[in-house]
Design a protein around this nucleic acid. Structure first.
Length: 272
DNA sequence: CTATGGACCTGAATGC
DNA sequence: TGCATTCAGGTCCATA
């Protein structure tokens, strides 16, 4: 479900609710991607000082002790209640605080919660250490982006998904950004000229920033922290539109598989 | 080091 | 209606 915009929207609403709250306990459901071995009272007494984000990871900074890292995987969402309903079969993590309960709901359990005390940043460092540039920050530099692309022989779409050059571009927005830049997803990343890399750089920023501004509502079943479903307005140019006419030129949108993931593009607007 | 395919898990949609 | 197959927004890991 979540790509960077959805995670960012989630971050903002989580921050507004739990920042400054003190943790009372945690409740664990089924194991997520990595089992979290933690007693219910393990974090009790810690305060949530800040809610950050790196790529698609949410970072709950706790004082005095460390960072609680949360990833939503493919199907995860966070909810917040003053008085939460009884946990369902897919509610796998509750953070009980003085402000209310933050709950991770994740049917497929590809998501994760990782606790890293400051003394031992092992797991968090390993997960965050290889991440690429943040696309919505000044850190996302066109020259470095182009240099990174030039070193890769793989199709540009798969390089975008890799997350080691630039983070946060998921399967939907990868297709959308490539369409906006007029670049075919199958082109070897190394073959992109600087001007075309610059167009892609700008397209990534624009597509993601627009989705954030719309509250992450571009995804079909995005569920905000307040429980409201999105507006069900998947306004994609190409994603999920195989066979339908390109909104720019009318040619039928094509679908192909790259690295076991669906890719969509316009054969006319994206020549190479 | 890079590139590729498999793995993890469940539910919804589709097809016969 | 029932049952099998396909597909889904992520990313780590083993293997060449």
């Amino acid at each position: 479900m979540p790509e960077l915009p959805e995670v960012e929207v989630t971050r903002r609403s989580v921050a507004s609710r739990v920042q400054g709250a003190r943790i009372l306990a945690v409740r664990l459901g089924k194991p997520l991607r990595w089992p979290l071995d933690m007693a219910p009272g393990a974090l009790a007494g810690q305060t949530v000082t800040d809610v950050g984000r790196r790529g698609k990871y949410l970072l709950l900074h706790l004082a005095p002790g460390g960072v609680l890292l949360v990833h939503l995987g493919m199907s995860g969402s966070l909810g917040f209640w003053r008085e939460p309903p009884a946990p369902g079969p897919h509610d796998h993590f509750d953070l009980l605080t003085t402000a209310g309960v933050l709950r991770l709901h994740d049917p497929r359990r590809f998501g994760a919660v990782v606790w890293s005390p400051h003394a031992d940043m092992g797991m968090a460092a390993k997960l965050l250490g290889k991440l690429g540039m943040e696309p919505l920050s000044a850190d996302f530099d066109p020259a470095r982006f182009h240099a990174g692309l030039r070193r890769r022989q793989a199709p540009v779409k798969q390089v975008l998904l890799g997350g080691d050059l630039v983070v946060g571009v998921g399967n939907i927005y990868a297709s959308e950004a490539l369409f906006m830049a007029g670049i075919r997803p199958t082109v070897a990343a190394s073959r992109l000229s600087r001007p075309r890399a610059d167009r892609l750089h700008a397209a990534i920023r624009e597509v993601l920033a627009r989705a954030v501004a719309r509250g992450g509502s571009t995804l079909r079943d995005f569920v905000g922290v307040d429980g409201n479903a999105g507006h069900f307005q998947l306004e994609s140019a190409v994603y999920g539109r195989a066979g339908q006419p390109c909104r720019a030129c009318g040619a039928p949108i094509r679908r192909l598989i790259q690295g076991q993931r669906a890719t969509y593009y316009c054969p006319v607007c994206q020549k190479a």
